[in-house]
Design a protein around this nucleic acid. Structure first.
Lengths: 194, 194
DNA sequence: CCCCAGATTTGACAAATGTCAATAAATTAC
DNA sequence: GTAATTTATTGACATTTGTCAAATCTGGGG
């Protein structure tokens, strides 16, 4: 894939919801910069204000918290062809509770908060696309809350298996465990028993 | 409060974000119907498609799920001066996993899905107000996910106490417990110990 | 104002999950 | 390819939380 293609997936993502001219698309994409990350690279640290929102071309970003004892909890995962960041920090421009890490070597696009908000004011249809995306992500978070307040460890794991098996194959089980809010030992036992 | 005033809070809510003319406000409000509910009244049952989104003038609505054994889990609470519904069902117009119940005698406004979407297309500024509200609620849900995957029962209760003491005073502890995803007995013991 | 259904508390016990430590397996970096 | 490092598994045990049952409390409706 040459440099001219790095915006192809972003254009497709936008085109799924609205139809815009090629010049408009080019203008939209010009706000995004391109970057390749190494495995394990940290893109944001806690207490920093998230400057960017990311579109993942390939690879995976992980938004996670760390407690005083160094224990990590994965709040969110961002895979190919989706947008994400440390959402509260980016949106409110306040210090982040979370880190962002590239769990795989990834190829990503990123946009500043200022440019992001600028597009909302100036780019026709972008506020709608973003709003619909927000609805989708909010619904996903509601489903996750439901599973967290109603299910035990095995049920949560089985649900993830059925809804997102790719995630389980792809990520180390340590991350699966702290995404589900259980210990790695418990997860390991679930896998062998069931 | 007479009938002419039932839209006062909704107008204030809208006015917090954008400035609109009185006629526009009146048009906006005309899409909302007014209703008083009894304590315990069910507004939506699981498997129904949520027809309405609600603005609560006073009182409190509760969005909850019920498992096969009849155990309830509170997904969401909607207090005065805020908007809410069984969000996934209302937004996607698909059968709801959740019930909506009025936990107190309440006074509410409600709007159909069709009118809600109509306003997004026709009412200047409404998509923005709604989008910003979505961001706020999505952030709240992220915070809740964080507390669910990182905290034990006592920590979750203490957090709720510090962030939302009114909620604890106002609602029966059975509901507090299933909002936190713990049993009422565990909650009762936390309260006496700490 | 009283009664009663529902809510809360408490006790005894069971089950689920976490913690710590040791070992085994896998993956990365060189 | 191999050593070094991380990751995953397993065992033993502690802790938390859930479950069921009974007793007590409470507040809303008549």
């Amino acid at each position: 894939m040459n440099d001219a293609d790095v915006y192809g997936q972003l254009k497709q993502y936008l085109g799924k919801h609205i139809t815009v001219s090629d010049e408009q698309l080019a203008l939209f994409c010009s706000k995004f910069k391109h970057k390749k990350t190494k495995r394990g690279e940290i893109l944001l640290r806690a207490d920093e204000i998230a400057p960017y929102s990311y579109f993942v071309n390939n690879g995976c970003l992980r938004v996670y918290m760390m407690d005083a004892e160094g224990r990590e909890s994965t709040r969110f995962l961002i895979f190919e062809n989706s947008v994400g960041t440390a959402f509260p920090s980016f949106t409110l421009q306040e210090p982040s509770m979370a880190y962002i890490q590239s769990v795989e070597p990834s190829e990503i696009l990123y946009i500043t908060h200022k440019d992001f908000n600028g597009l909302l004011d100036t780019f026709p249809g972008w506020e709608r696309v973003y709003r619909i995306d927000l609805e989708r992500e909010y619904i996903a978070s509601i489903r996750r809350i439901e599973s967290l307040i109603t299910m035990d460890a095995k049920q949560k794991y089985n649900l993830l298996m059925s809804k997102n098996p790719a995630l389980i194959q792809r990520l180390p089980s340590r991350i699966i465990a702290d995404y589900l809010g259980i210990s790695q030992e418990t997860l390991s036992r679930l896998k062998s028993k069931k």
